Structure formats: C-alpha cells, structure tokens
Simulated scan of single mutants.
Amino acid sequence: MSIKLSVVDQSPVHGSHAKIEAPRLTVELAQLCDELGYHRFWVAEHHDSVHFANPCPEIMVASIASVTQRIRVGSGGVMLSHYSPLKVAECFKMMETLHPGRIDLGVGRAPGGSGLTSHALAFPHEPHHGDLYAHQAQMLEGFVNGTLPTDTPYHNIKVLPDSSPKPQLWMLGSSGGSAGLAGHLGYNLALARFIDPDNCSPSIFHTYSEEWKKAGHEGTPNTMLAIACICAETEAEAKLRAGTAVYRKFAAQMGQREDFLTPSEVRDRYNAMSASHQAAYDHILNGYTVGTPEQCWQEIEQLAKAFDCDEVSTVTVTHSHYDRMDSYRLLAKHL
C-alpha cells in the first residue's frame, strides 16, 4: 500500500521556547514538512489553553500557505459550532482563490475549549453546544460548492464575485458520531484516533462509506486516519520524549492542568505513581505510535491496512521544538 503521510499540528507551547513563539514554530514546521514531502499540513483550533496556541486556524492556514510551495494546507479543524457557515466559506474560498488547489477546510463539532469560552465566543447570543452542527455543516457545504437549495433565503448570496474556487471539504470525528453525517453531506472524513484510540475502530469508515453511497454522491471519498506519533533514533528515546504528551493527557483525566513537563520530570513523576496510575499512564502510551522510524512506519502501515485508508496524519507533541522537528525528519526518510 502506498501511504500518503500528513501532519495535524496543535501549535504546542514548547518548554524550550517562549510561549509567544509557538505560532511561529508551527509555520517553521510546516515549511520543513513541505520540503520533506508530506502531503498535507493541518492546524487545530483550541481556546483558553495553556498547552496549544492556535485559536484561529484560518489565520494560520493563510500564513502557512503563503510561505510554502507544494504541500496542501488546511484546518483540522475549524470548530464550526462557534461560527457562521457563510463567514467560514468566505475565508476558505478566499484562501483557495489565492492558493489554488492547496486549501483544505476541515470542520469539527467539538468546542475546542471550555464551556466558558463557548459562551464568550457566542456572546451576545447563547452557545448552541453543537445542536445545530448538522445544519451548519449542510449550509457550509452549500456555500462552498454553490449548492444551496433554491427555496432557501440564502440561495442567491455570492460568496465571492468569482466563487468557483472550492477548498476540499473534510469533517473530523474521533468516535464515529460524525461519520454518517459526513457521508450523507459528501464531506471527506478524517478520523482522529489520537483523541480516543479506544473507541476509534475501522467500522467508522465503513459506516461513512455506506452513507456516502446511500446519498448517491459521485466519485470516491477521501479518508484519513490521524494518530499520535513520536519518532526518535531509539525506542527508549522516543518513549522518553513521548512522556510530555502522555502525561498531559493523563493529568487532564485527573482534572489537572499545568505547563508541559520535561521528559525527565515526567519520568520522575511516573516512578512516584501508584501502580494503578502507572497502568493508566501506560494505557495512554499504548495508544501512541512511538519508536524508531522503522517501528513507527511498521505500525503506520498496520493501521492503514486495518482502517483501509491510504493516508495517515501524525500529531506530534513534545517538550522541545527540536524533538518535534526531529520526529518529522526521521519519519520522512521512509516517504
């Protein structure tokens, strides 16, 4: 199987750099991945986070597209419940106009932050907590592709004077809840295994494919599996570097929030944990793809085969920006 390797980047706030540097480091990583031959580079959306520094993916996508040459650039994703479908369509169709054939518009249902930030983003209105997501996604598809029904009041709205450029539409999911909707509306589907590997099964893509066929869409939809991956020269070093991301997830499950810990700090805390907490930590680690380039690629190929998809996207979070760049360099040797 020929696998396209892509990137979903969360703009982590590395302990190795000042916090204000995090967005710039994402742009730097995107330029590297463009040179290394990665297929796409997507950016995530987070609000009120101490760990991730990108609340506005549309700005980051535009910045990255302007300083890269070949790689597709997009959102993974825009948290659509906060926004007007028309405005999202305007932003991404404009980017596709300026960077033809390179822009992806991925959307998700999750809030990307706390309940308080959802209220602030919706002000002066009340947040709808995703209850209107299906309707928003349908409207967004209509605005992007010019397919709004003639009996809707928005049918004659011109997104741009020349509205022909169309970003590639994707929907994000982590446990199957959006698969049927994506297939019904004709979105491509990205499955975020890195969020919830325990509930992320190949059957989700099957459900999606069946809904796509049932809706009568033409062509073959694109599917992508997004995984957490940390690569290093040795397996021991990869596991050590992975500790930063694994402990953040473990701490979140414990209701704790603090800046990223160094790998050595994580190791010390792990050694001081109870057996049950060590087991919980190990379970999270087992959901990551961690190891040498050969080990990581072996697992990537196994996952691609199991999920019957030819594109895998990697999410790499480390304490050091150097380690993040190094992981992508090592993986790229097998592209």
Rank of each mutant, 00 (worst) to 15 (best):
A252H: 13
I3P: 14
W42M: 05
Q278G: 01
K249R: 15
E126Y: 09
I3V: 15
G183F: 08
A190N: 09
Y154L: 15
P12Y: 06
S276I: 02
P23T: 03
P221A: 01
Q256A: 10
Y322G: 04
H319I: 02
L185V: 01
E90I: 00
T147F: 03
Q256N: 09
Y154S: 10
S49N: 12
Y83Q: 00
T262I: 01
S66D: 12
A275L: 11
S274Y: 06
S49I: 02
L32Y: 05
I204N: 10
W212D: 09
T262S: 15
G219S: 06
A332G: 06
D131C: 09
P23C: 03
R24H: 10
S274E: 11
V290P: 05
Q136D: 12
G216K: 05
I195W: 07
S203E: 14
L36F: 07
G77T: 12
S174K: 03
E211H: 15
Y247Q: 07
T244I: 00
C56K: 05
S164K: 14
K87D: 09
M95E: 09
H184V: 02
E210M: 02
H135V: 08
F260A: 08
I204Y: 08
H99I: 01
V246P: 07
Q298K: 11
Y247S: 05
C91W: 10
I157K: 05
L160Y: 04
L105D: 03
I64Q: 05
M325W: 04
N188K: 10
E211D: 12
R102L: 01
L172D: 12
A228Q: 11
H155P: 08
R267W: 03
H277K: 14
I227M: 04
D326P: 00
W42F: 13
E211V: 03
I227Y: 03
L116A: 13
G108S: 10
A120K: 10
A242V: 08
E58Y: 07
G15N: 11
I157T: 14
Q278H: 07
F123N: 11
N188I: 08
V317K: 02
Q136N: 10
G176T: 04
G130Y: 07
Y270A: 06
T207E: 14
S327C: 07
E218R: 11
D9H: 13
V50A: 10
K214R: 15
G37C: 01
C296A: 07
E235S: 14
Q253W: 09
N286K: 14
R40E: 02
G15P: 05
I284R: 00
A251R: 04
P12E: 13
E258I: 05
S276T: 12
P55H: 06
A182T: 09
V27K: 01
N156E: 15
T234R: 01
K305G: 10
S11M: 05
L169C: 03
Y328F: 15
F250Y: 12
M139I: 06
E218F: 06
K158N: 14
A236V: 09
Q253E: 15
H46Y: 12
L303Q: 07
E96F: 06
P127V: 00
A137M: 10
P127F: 01
L191T: 07
M325E: 13
M94C: 13
S178C: 11
Y322V: 13
V312A: 04
E28R: 13
E235K: 06
